[in-house]
């Protein structure tokens, strides 16, 4: 009863967090477990949206918007295109490598268990509402720190994107005498 009373006395933001977390996990599990790849993609969109909601809870509005635009928007469309092109619906094969599945499950459970045990012991100082900068997740503060303190890494990310782009063009270019898949 004590436990229940504790739960009832929680502030509403905890309920929001709990509901969102359940939704995120539901979407993630659905992505992995559903047989139909299109369903997987839809579950993944659920996950992305609820993650965005998490970001808003963390006062990171810009990140939430970017997450929806880039992931739920652009990348998901890309996924759907690939699935439509490959037409995988009929070829949903049974995974035959049971050994790998068992090993993966055992490893994941052990790792997850260790992390949960460890992180339960972790202590965090609560945020002081008087000194907390409520603008911290806003685009202005973010822009200032990107172009101020983190200028060099921000610029060097362009090298990363350039490598990825040059590499993708190089690998994707069709040549004479190449195998066709």
């Amino acid at each position: 009863m004590e436990y229940l009373k504790n739960i009832l006395s929680l502030p509403p933001i905890y309920y929001t967090f709990a509901i969102l977390s359940v939704l995120t996990l539901f979407g993630a599990l659905g992505t992995v477990m559903s047989r139909n790849p299109v369903h997987s993609v839809i579950y993944m969109i659920v996950t992305f949206f609820s993650l965005s909601a998490h970001y808003i809870l963390l006062n990171a509005q810009f990140l939430a918007a970017v997450n929806i635009i880039v992931y739920a928007g652009a990348i998901m469309v890309l996924f759907l295109f690939v699935i439509m092109f490959l037409n995988m619906k009929q070829e949903a094969e049974e995974m035959k490598k049971e050994k790998i599945i068992y090993t993966a499950v055992i490893t994941a459970v052990i790792l997850g268990g260790i992390l949960i045990i460890f992180l339960r012991r972790a202590e965090r100082e609560p945020v002081n509402p008087l000194t907390y900068n409520s603008q911290s997740g806003m685009i202005e503060v973010l822009g200032r720190s990107l172009y101020g303190e983190y200028l060099l890494p921000f610029e060097l990310i362009s090298i990363l994107l350039l490598v990825a782009m040059a590499g993708a063009v190089m690998l994707g270019k069709r040549e004479a005498g190449e195998r066709h898949f």
Binding site: L160, V163, A164, A166, G167, A168, M170, L171, E175, G177, E178, R179
Partner: peptide
């Protein structure tokens, strides 16, 4: 990322 690309650079 550079290494991933260069590993697959021989497409044949």
């Amino acid at each position: 990322v550079s290494m991933y690309v260069l590993t697959g650079s021989d497409k044949r």
